[in-house]
C-alpha cells in the first residue's frame, strides 16, 4: 500500500477573460468616465436651456421678418435727402426684406442651428474637463497604471470628446428640428431644408461643435489645472471675438494700413468659427471659410501636441 504525496491544493485564482476590442477599450473607459458623473447631464441641461432660449429669440425674430416679407401692401419710399447711390442701396435692401423666399431661408438657417453660441462654449468646456478631471481628482494615477502608454490615453479621450461633441450637436439639432418644423408648418411655409445655404449652416454647425470640443480638449491637455483650463477656454471664447476684432482694427488703423491685417483676424478662434459658419462673408476682408476650419484645427493640434509631449515626461505625483 502506498500513499501518494499530494501538493497542497493551489489556491483557486479566478480566470479573468479578456474582453473588448483593444483599440476601443480606452474609448469605452473614457465614455464611462463621462457618463458616471454629473457633468454630462448638467452640461446637457444647460445646452438644452440655451437651445430653447435661442429658439425662442430666433423664432420671434423670424416671425417678424416673415410677416414683413408677406406684407404686399408695403411699397418702397426713398428717404429724404438721399443721393442716387443711397436710394439704389435702400431699394435693394427693401427688395431683400420683402423677398419671402430669402427671408424663409435665412430664418431656417438661424432656427435649425439655434443654441450654437453657448452650445459651442459648453462642448469646449467639456473637452477641457475630460482631461483636467484626471488631475483635479487625482485619478491620473489609476488611469496611467492601467495604461502606461500615456499618448494612447490621450487618443482614447480624444475620440470620446469627439463623440461627446457629436451627441451634444445631435440633441441640440433634434430639438431645433422639431421646433423649426412646427414653426414653418404653422406659418404654411417651406422649411427650406432642401436649400443649400440651410444645409451648409447645419453641416458647419456640426463641424464647429467638433472643432470647439477639440480645442477645449487641446487646452486641457496643455493646462492640467482645471480652473486654469476653464478660465483660459472662456477667455479664448469670449475675449477672442471682441478683443480680436478690436486689436486687429487698431493695427489696421494705426500700424499697418493694409487690408490683409483684417483678413488675418481669422487666427482668433472665435472669429475663425464665425467665418466658417457664415454663409456669406462676415465682413468685406474676411478670410474664406476653409481658413476658419484650418485655424481651429491648427490651434487644437498645437495645444494638443505640446500637451502630449509634456504629458509623456510629466511626473504623476
Amino acid at each position: 500500500m502506498s500513499t501518494t504525496l499530494q501538493a497542497p491544493p493551489a489556491a483557486s485564482r479566478p480566470v479573468i477573460a479578456h474582453v473588448g476590442v483593444p483599440g476601443l477599450r480606452l474609448v469605452r473607459s473614457e465614455i464611462r468616465k463621462v457618463t458616471t458623473t454629473n457633468a454630462w447631464w448638467l452640461f446637457g441641461l444647460a445646452s438644452l436651456a440655451f437651445t430653447g432660449l435661442a429658439l425662442f429669440i430666433n423664432m420671434s425674430e423670424a416671425a417678424e421678418h416673415i410677416r414683413r416679407a408677406r406684407d404686399t401692401a408695403a411699397v418702397f419710399k426713398p428717404g429724404r435727402g438721399m443721393d442716387a447711390a443711397e436710394i439704389a442701396a435702400a431699394r435693394v435692401e427693401f427688395a431683400q426684406l420683402h423677398d419671402l423666399q430669402l427671408q424663409a431661408v435665412n430664418a431656417a438657417g438661424n432656427i435649425f442651428t439655434s443654441g450654437q453660441f453657448f452650445g459651442l462654449l459648453l462642448v469646449m468646456l467639456l473637452g477641457a474637463l475630460v482631461i483636467t478631471n484626471e488631475f483635479q481628482y487625482q485619478t491620473a494615477t489609476a488611469t496611467f497604471l492601467t495604461t502606461p502608454q500615456r499618448t494612447r490615453v490621450v487618443f482614447g479621450k480624444l475620440f470620446a470628446v469627439l463623440g461627446l461633441g457629436l451627441v451634444f450637436w445631435l440633441v441640440s439639432r433634434a430639438v431645433s428640428f422639431a421646433a423649426g418644423l412646427i414653426f414653418f408648418h404653422n406659418l404654411g411655409l417651406t422649411n427650406s431644408l432642401g436649400e443649400w445655404p440651410v444645409q451648409r449652416a447645419i453641416i458647419f454647425n456640426l463641424v464647429a461643435y467638433l472643432l470647439w470640443a477639440l480645442l477645449g480638449f487641446g487646452l486641457g491637455t496643455l493646462i492640467h489645472n482645471q480652473i486654469g483650463a476653464v478660465v483660459t477656454s472662456m477667455i479664448v471664447y469670449f475675449g477672442g471675438l471682441i478683443g480680436g476684432i478690436g486689436v486687429f482694427s487698431l493695427i489696421r488703423e494705426y500700424v499697418i494700413h493694409e487690408d490683409w491685417v483684417l483678413t488675418s483676424a481669422v487666427v482668433m478662434p472665435p472669429i475663425a468659427s464665425q467665418i466658417m459658419v457664415s454663409p456669406e462673408k462676415l465682413y468685406a476682408e474676411a478670410a474664406p471659410w476653409w481658413a476658419g476650419v484650418l485655424v481651429l484645427t491648427g490651434w487644437s493640434l498645437i495645444a494638443g501636441i505640446i500637451g502630449i509631449v509634456i504629458n509623456r515626461r510629466r511626473d504623476i505625483a
Partner: peptide, 18 residues
Amino acid sequence: SAHRGRTGRNHLRILCDA
C-alpha cells in the same frame, strides 16, 4: 483617488473597461 461624484463600483468598472 477616485472622482468625488463617482460610485466605487463605477470607478472600478472604468478600470475594467480600460
